[in-house]
Simulated scan of single mutants.
Amino acid sequence: MRKRPLILQSDFGTSDGAVSAMYGVAYGVDQELKISDLTHEIPQYDIWEASYRLIQTLSYWPEGSVFVSVVDPGVGSTRRSIVVETKAGQYIVSPDNGTLTHIKRMIGLKQARVIDERVNRLPNSGESYTFHGRDIYAYTGARLAAGVITFEEVGPQVDVESVIELPIVEAIYDGEKVRGTIDVLDVRFGSLWTNISRDLFKKLGVDHGGRVEISIENGTRTLYKNILAYAKSFADVYVGEPLVYVNSLDCMAVAINQGSFARAYNIGTGTSWRITIRKAPRLVYENESQVFEG
Rank of each mutant, 00 (worst) to 15 (best):
D96H: 06
I136N: 05
F189Q: 10
V158R: 02
T150M: 01
S162F: 01
G98A: 12
W193F: 13
S81T: 08
L109N: 03
R143T: 03
D96W: 07
T194Q: 09
K202E: 15
E161H: 14
G180E: 02
T99C: 03
V84S: 01
V148Y: 03
G180Q: 08
A146G: 09
V184F: 05
D183N: 14
V148A: 08
K104P: 07
D159P: 01
K87W: 10
G180N: 10
S191W: 10
H102I: 05
V163E: 10
V178D: 05
D135R: 01
P95H: 11
I182V: 12
G89Q: 06
K110R: 15
G141P: 10
N195K: 13
D199Q: 12
K87E: 14
T150E: 06
E161T: 12
A142F: 10
V158I: 15
E165G: 04
I196E: 06
A145G: 13
V158N: 02
Y137S: 10
K104M: 11
F201S: 05
I92M: 10
V187F: 11
V93N: 10
R121M: 01
L122S: 02
M106F: 13
S191H: 13
G155D: 09
Q157V: 05
D186C: 06
K104N: 09
R188L: 09
T181E: 09
T130I: 07
K110W: 04
Y139I: 04
G126W: 05
P95F: 12
Y137N: 08
I92H: 07
V148M: 03
R198G: 08
N120F: 00
S162A: 10
I115F: 02
F189R: 15
E85H: 01
D186H: 13
V184L: 09
F151K: 06
Y173D: 02
V178N: 07
A88D: 12
V206P: 11
P156R: 15
M106E: 15
V160Q: 01
I115C: 05
L204A: 04
R113I: 12
I172V: 15
R198E: 15
T181Q: 08
Y173C: 03
R198S: 14
N195C: 14
V83A: 12
I164V: 15
E152I: 01
E127N: 06
H102Y: 15
F131C: 07
E161W: 09
G205E: 11
I182T: 06
A145E: 11
L204D: 08
G133C: 11
V160A: 02
I168A: 11
G126I: 00
Y139R: 05
P95L: 13
D174M: 04
V84Q: 01
V184K: 15
W193C: 14
K177S: 14
D135Q: 02
T99V: 13
D135Y: 03
G89N: 08
N120Y: 00
